[in-house]
């Protein structure tokens, strides 16, 4: 983030009891400290997500304790667990129903790539085939500390998003889509198997 106020001047002013800020900083500060996740879990990773939200690991320290049972009030979707092909359309639809700005954490090997069930006929090989993911956490399951780390990474990302100029935050860009096509059940797989506008698997050069 480009500093809009001279840091030296700012700390000098702070010593005198004067706090200066900008609209962007205020906006991002408010957003990053009250991220409300959508309350849903898919498989074993969800247990770790529950542990993270409970008192021992206490997601509330980061402002993320308000798990919302409705996408209308959620900012963050934690895809915690195995995404079956039967479930994928619902997840995309829930993501579509969340209001902007919205973020996605892909938690665990399953949500990233299908994990241990990658060869399964009924498992989606990564939720990033249909919705944009902001933070990936590896692990099977990732420990609560890993989810906390992902949460802090997300906060860092939110803090760096710009209100004006280019590149702006995605949700402020009028051309950036807020809804993505929901896949349909086909004869053998979901149709389409991935959203080509979103999904760019790394190419292997040999």
């Amino acid at each position: 983030m480009a500093p809009q106020i001279d840091e030296g001047l700012r700390s000098e002013l702070q010593k005198q009891g004067i706090w200066v800020t900008s609209m962007q900083e205020l906006y991002n500060w408010g957003r990053k400290n009250s991220i409300w996740p959508l309350q849903f879990g898919l498989a074993c990773c969800a247990i770790e997500m529950i542990a993270t939200a409970a008192s021992r690991y206490d997601l509330a320290r980061f402002g993320g304790e308000v798990f919302r049972p409705s996408p209308r009030q959620a900012d963050l979707m934690i895809v915690a667990g195995t995404v079956t092909k039967k479930m994928a359309p619902q997840i995309v639809r829930l993501y579509n129903q969340m209001p902007d700005p919205k973020y996605v954490i892909s938690m665990g090997a399953c949500a990233i790539s299908g994990g241990p069930f990658k060869q399964g006929y009924n498992v989606l090989k990564g939720i990033d085939r249909y919705i944009p993911v902001d933070v990936y956490i590896s692990g099977c399951p990732p420990r609560p500390e890993a989810l906390l780390h992902a949460f802090m990474e997300l906060q860092r990302k939110i803090d760096g998003q710009r209100l004006t100029g280019t590149p702006k935050a995605d949700h402020l860009e009028a051309t950036h889509p807020s809804e993505f096509p929901v896949p349909e059940f086909g004869a053998h797989d979901l149709q389409p198997p991935a959203n080509p506008a979103l999904f760019h698997p790394p190419e292997i050069h040999r």
């Binding site: 619902q90 639809r93 949700h171 402020l172 889509p177 807020s178 809804e179």
Partner: peptide, 20 residues
């Protein structure tokens, strides 16, 4: 001034656990 509204068919639909 900042955030353009982005309504859509799913967003405006009734919410029911992700299914129609």
């Amino acid at each position: 001034f900042f955030q353009p509204p982005k309504p859509g068919p799913a967003k405006n639909a009734t919410y029911e656990c992700g299914v129609e």
